[in-house]
Amino acid sequence: MIKDITIGQYFPGESVLHHLDPRTKLLLTVLYIVILFMAKSMLAFILIVLLTAALIPISGISFKVIAKSLKPLLFIIIFTMTLNLFFTKGEGEPLLSFWIINIYKEGVSFAIYMIVRIICLITGTGVILTYTTSPIQLTDGIEQLLAPLSKIKLPVHEFAMMMSCALRFIPTLVEETDKIMSAQKARGADFTSGSLIRRAKAIIPILIPLFVSAFRRADELAVAMECRCYHGGEGRTRMNSLHFSARDLLVTLVFVLFGAGVVLLNIFTRGIGIGI
């Protein structure tokens, strides 16, 4: 069912990662991605895998959930792996060679590094950001990080408000889709069999009611916001204002240390020749 989609979904919890300031987590995500793409040697990769593997139990997100979120990416993972495996040219003799296909040692290591990179990217950003940060916190964090841009007349608050409205309505619309699908199934609609054109046609009975209700909801929301005197971001205060704590500093420090470790390992292992 549609409800079972996990990628990018928030799982409430009480872990250290859940309690970090969303701004810290946004910056950490960027730092994590940078570190991930800086790594150029096997030891550096091992360091990152260790960090990512440690983050999973710390966040309290189950391995099952993470495995499920990787499933839709299986195709991309296999695709990049094959491309790297067959089309990387190395210097020495090929390991395997038949017809026009040559597999080099470099190809194998590139393929492995690519898989590790993709899996770490999805798992890491999920655990640091999307699984452990509620959508509300996330938009609050983005809004405050971008706040300086409003000095040059960028509508940062409006942008953040639009984003939180959109995020707020994703679950509602998913639920609504589920309901409408069930209602049409009760009238004998069939979404899973028949030709492509038949299946595309079968979606119409879902889309039209969904659009009608999305517009109705948008209208109701606008009226409700005006009733509560919404007038944009100026002079607005928050119920939960964000504060950096010692915890944020500590976790950032750990990430910076790992980053430094990766950089050092890059330089050091290249010197002794076990890099790529």
């Binding site: 309901k179 209602a183 049409q184 009760a186 009611p209 209700s213």
Partner: peptide, 17 residues
């Protein structure tokens, strides 16, 4: 079975299309 057991959902007017 769905043709033999007819189910009218809550607020069924939202399924009109």
């Amino acid at each position: 079975i769905r043709f033999r057991v007819g189910l009218v959902f809550q607020y069924p007017e939202y399924q009109l299309f």
